[in-house]
Nucleic acid binder design. Structure first.
Lengths: 188, 188
DNA sequence: GTCTATAGGCAGATAGAC
DNA sequence: GTCTATCTGCCTATAGAC
């Protein structure tokens, strides 16, 4: 058994749903498959989640809430040190790697107003905090590149993520480029 | 009309199929939708492509062939300058941005042996050329980061890609890190 | 809370006329 | 080359018994 039955049924469902969504995609995964893995019936699933869509909403909420909090914090803070922003974003990203993978890969996900649309506007907000308002084209591109570095963390085996975090952050900052003026000896 | 009827029917089909796959995903796109857009019937589609899967094969072939050529070239060449490899990969990537987006986002695509599996082994081969055999963990991670920068090109509006190419390449090289020993005054 | 049974729809695919 | 008509199957979802 991949999922021992010591978790609540609801959590088990979310767990294997995520697993299957990541492996096959949202559309390609049927409720029957999820039910079979858990030795439940489709109807039992519907008891916990009245619609397939709700699985997506529940799965993505923690990440989206995290992004929302990050944006709020960034807005209230005066300082806009790009490195701090990248660092916070990277940590959030690492915390929810699997969900990020789901969001990034699933077009179905991306078009749902409560998920994809929200994710998109949050991502834009973070990008703005990084690039500043009305940035030069080069600055905008390099910002996108830095975020690309962070997103590449999804390719790295989850087990190694924690120990490689600082390297990824360094690479992201390097991709951002010359924006780093002075304090090169800053540690942690 | 998005697709004027001056292309061959087959090309029109591939064209709108790609458009819809990118917008909604492969699974979520039905043959009926594709047929309706072109004012054809499902059966007409089946005349040109005897299976839905074949649309995927045809769409991804140009990119995969390009990657295959790149790997062959890299293998036969003695020099392994990371910047040259990144540059070649970036150009290939830009040439086929849309297909890369499809490949990257579609889990359905990724599991087809003639597509996803081939793409995966080709990507690994390129990564090996960049990182070298049996690289240090840091080197491996930074290589992944540099490729992440290139992949982030998919986020940039296609119209601006050509003029921003050099910036993206510079960011990728920066993400790779210290591998660049001396010439720091290189411009353009 | 979990089940059986079933509705109802739309998918991919085929046969054969024109 | 493109059509009409049709088959078959699986999907999401519901109603109601236990």
């Amino acid at each position: 058994m991949t999922t021992p039955s010591r978790m609540g049924t609801r959590e088990q469902i979310l767990d294997t749903a995520l697993e299957l969504f990541l492996a096959q995609g949202y559309d390609a995964t049927s409720l029957r498959q999820i039910a079979e893995r858990l030795q439940l019936t489709k109807a039992a699933l519907y008891y916990h989640f009245p619609a397939k869509e709700l699985l997506l909403l529940e799965l993505t909420r923690p990440l989206l809430d995290g992004m929302g909090r990050l944006v709020t914090e960034l807005r209230s803070a005066e300082d806009h040190d790009p490195r701090a922003v990248l660092s916070a974003y990277l940590d959030l990203f690492i915390e929810h790697v699997d969900i990020v993978g789901l969001l990034g890969r699933e077009p179905a996900t991306l078009h749902h107003p409560d998920v994809g649309q929200r994710a998109h506007s949050l991502a834009i907000a973070i990008q703005r905090q990084l690039a500043g308002v009305d940035p030069q084209p080069e600055r905008a591109v390099r910002t996108a590149c830095a975020l690309g570095v962070i997103h590449s963390a999804a390719q790295i085996p989850p087990g190694m993520l924690a120990e490689q975090r600082d390297i990824i952050l360094a690479a992201a900052i390097a991709a951002l480029g010359e924006a780093v003026p002075t304090q090169s000896a800053q540690r942690k």
